[in-house]
Design a protein around this nucleic acid. Structure first.
Lengths: 204, 204
DNA sequence: ACAATGATACAGACCTGTCTCTACCATCGC
DNA sequence: GCGATGGTAGAGACAGGTCTGTATCATTGT
């Protein structure tokens, strides 16, 4: 959001923007408070007046990521109103493109959980909440698409999604990461064999 | 394993055992040299005489993990000699059980790469080498099983494998993580339409 | 004047890696 | 046999750096 020229945005927003970028790109433990201070051009006390601790800042970063992810999801599915099967495929198609992006660094929640192993860490709870939200959304779409076994399809797709996040950084999955979309399509079409297939049947 | 009573094993092995367990369970960055020293009952200089640095110790841990993983793979596939399709399914079945194990903490290479973001870190190179090895093995099996498009099936299965590793820690995938085996079976059977018969040609 | 912020010094903890000192034990020369 | 020697290892102090978080003071905008 571009503020007016010469009018700086509040310290809290600058801190959160910088922290989010650095946490995602370089890792949470690898980025110290001093680095965030220097990059955002903010005094250390301004950070600690806005966030109780580094953990608190990490949580704010993850919470904002959850909101952004939900918006992305809604944007993608909105392109196929009423067609749950197409929505599912679109999500995985978009995911395949996203992992090609140069700034892609995996799922911020999964990597946060990998870095912060303490079960009591509040960031872990946020990561779990996000995975549950994704699971619920996938499950609702699987039901709406008429899958024979929505639980199974939902679990399979979530596996595939986590795999795309994990592998995208390291493996090369071929042009456009075609494997993501093709695996999703295979699982989805296999799971909703005979039921409503408004357009898929036409393509076969 | 069982050395003679009262005859302690060499310091190097004790260090590596302790480091491997702690690195895998608690994370690499979270475990300091002093902790490894204390837990393995070894002098600090004994560690630094056997390993040039902590990075070097991390690499030794990952290299040993590669050997152990290869042995596990061979053990599982050896149960289905000559039947590549069954071998592939067996790998994912075993993976589904492994992620149920209480000590399971994801793929050690993926989590190491998540913790050590520096592209120049030698541990990252090891992680990449391991993923390539897995890819090559999967690809060979896909070819032997007569998949229509071995590259595609290999990519899909590696996605699924990464997903199982990533999700196993956080998500609940149902009893016995049935989704792993069922998704693999769906992808494999879909990719090798005609039984692994020699005359594999019909469609492109 | 006042509130928010920048700048900076500092405390305390922790981390990696080096250093010294001591103990044990096997081997070798005699 | 027996002492000297050298390799391996335990214990712990220490240096130099980084990290989080606090305190103090100066500056700026309204």
């Amino acid at each position: 959001m571009g503020g007016v020229e010469g009018e700086r945005r509040p310290a809290r927003e600058r801190i959160l923007d910088t922290a989010a970028e650095l946490f995602y790109r370089e890792g949470i433990r690898a980025v110290g408070i001093d680095t965030i201070i220097a990059r955002s051009g903010v005094a250390k006390m301004s950070l600690y007046r806005n966030f109780a601790s580094k953990d608190d800042l990490v949580c704010a970063y993850l919470e904002r990521s959850m909101v952004q992810h939900a918006a992305w999801w809604d944007r993608v599915t909105a392109r196929h109103p009423g067609d749950s099967r197409a929505q599912m495929k679109a999500i995985f198609m978009a995911l395949g493109h996203w992992i090609d992006h140069p700034k892609f660094q995996g799922c911020p929640f999964t990597t946060a959980a990998a870095e912060l192993r303490d079960p009591a860490n509040p960031a872990r709870a946020l990561a779990l909440a996000h995975k549950r939200m994704v699971r619920d959304r996938l499950h609702a779409m699987a039901v709406a698409a008429g899958a024979d076994d929505p639980d199974r399809l939902c679990g399979q797709l979530q596996l595939l999604m986590e795999g795309a996040y994990a592998a995208g950084r390291a493996l090369d999955l071929g042009p456009g990461n075609e494997a993501v979309a093709s695996a999703a399509a295979a699982l989805i079409d296999g799971a909703c064999a005979e039921k409503q297939s408004p357009e898929a049947k036409r393509r076969i």
